[in-house]
């Protein structure tokens, strides 16, 4: 692959520019759906974009007691991690420039970084509210990460590969893995909701309790970076789940004889539809429930999500052992 193509790939599509645009669009879809569920009008399509522009133009403030370097660096870490994670997720046919055996593990690790960054951000702002938020974020991390990792192992075991593209190819030649692991899909979506810190798991930034928690001292462009990072995290999370459970770019159409452009078109359309479907699920969960308390959240994860994901994993290993796949 030529250097030029690689740069184009990284910076324009599906890298930096596309990802930002799509993340803002996803935020719009999420907010609009949430609003319509509540009988509200909801924001216009460019609202998330306008929000980011507004934040970028705001005054830059760092608390006196906080460490300026840390406070500035942390959002960059979160942002870089989620953007990198997206490179390993295939969004059209046989697009695997960066893929290698084990990229699933890398994506999972990269997806944990935003939460850790949020924790550090909250801790370093030296504000009681954000420190309580930071403690909650880290407590919550251990609760949802376990089931999330466990259920995402399932597809890898079935497809006999640690590479996401292999798992997707396995699905297009066999069947979508959601048919085999509906339980795993549900657990993954719920855990993703926790990862994104949204209702009912928006405990670290519960606005009525700790005034926005983690990011309470963040303003201006640093806050904008964090917001972008969380939006992109949502895209990556949705894309990952759709790749592992919903067959990724597979659209039930044989693409063998088609031109590369048509292949790309079909795969990309499937990617959009599936990620939007997962965002729809996430928005519904957000509209349906009340916020849990941190102890209830942890109990819920270890009492329900973790056992369910272990059952799922055992079933999968059983199937594999019997040699059915």
């Amino acid at each position: 692959m030529s250097i030029l193509l690689e740069v184009l790939y990284l910076l324009v599509f599906p890298g930096f520019l596309f990802l930002i645009a799509y993340a803002l669009f996803i935020e719009y879809v999420d907010r609009k759906l949430y609003a319509r569920f509540q009988h509200r009008v909801g924001p216009p399509i460019l609202q998330p974009f306008a929000d980011i522009i507004k934040l970028l133009s705001k005054e830059d403030l760092v608390p006196k007691k906080a460490d300026r370097k840390m406070v500035s660096a942390i959002p960059l870490f979160a942002f870089a991690a989620v953007i990198t994670a997206f490179l390993y997720i295939p969004i059209w046919f046989n697009q695997s420039f960066f893929s290698f055996q084990g990229d699933l593990i890398v994506v999972l690790y990269l997806l944990s970084i935003p939460t850790l960054a949020l924790f550090l951000a909250g801790w370093h702002s030296s504000n009681p509210f954000s420190q309580v938020g930071a403690m909650r974020a880290i407590t919550q991390l251990f609760a949802y990460e376990v089931p999330f990792f466990l259920v995402l192992l399932g597809p890898a075991i079935i497809a006999d590969s640690w590479s996401i593209i292999d798992i997707v190819n396995f699905q297009s030649s066999n069947f979508w893995l959601i048919l085999m692991m509906p339980l795993g899909f549900i657990v993954a979506v719920i855990a993703l909701q926790g990862k994104l810190e949204r209702i009912p798991f928006d405990i670290p930034d519960a606005e009525t309790e700790i005034v926005g928690g983690l990011l309470v001292e963040y303003v201006g462009r640093r806050l904008a970076l964090f917001r972008m990072a969380i939006d992109i995290e949502m895209v990556v999370g949705a894309a990952l789940i759709s790749a592992l459970f919903l067959g990724g770019f597979d659209a039930f159409i044989s693409v063998a004889g088609l031109s590369p452009l048509a292949q790309f078109g079909i795969g990309f359309a499937a990617f959009l539809v599936k990620t939007l479907f997962i965002v729809f699920l996430l928005a519904s969960i957000r509209a349906l429930f009340a916020r849990l308390r941190i102890d209830q959240m942890v109990t819920f994860c270890f009492k329900w999500l973790a056992p369910l994901s272990i059952i799922q994993l055992l079933l999968i290993t059983g199937v594999k052992y019997m040699g059915w796949f």
């Binding site: 569920f37 509540q38 009988h39 509200r40 209702i199 009912p200 928006d202 519960a206 009525t208 509209a287 349906l288 429930f289 009340a290 916020r291």
Partner: peptide, 16 residues
Amino acid sequence: AAHEVGFDTLFMYTWR
């Protein structure tokens, strides 16, 4: 009360 426990949907419904 719904808003305080993060149940914004009920909040919007009742206020409507």
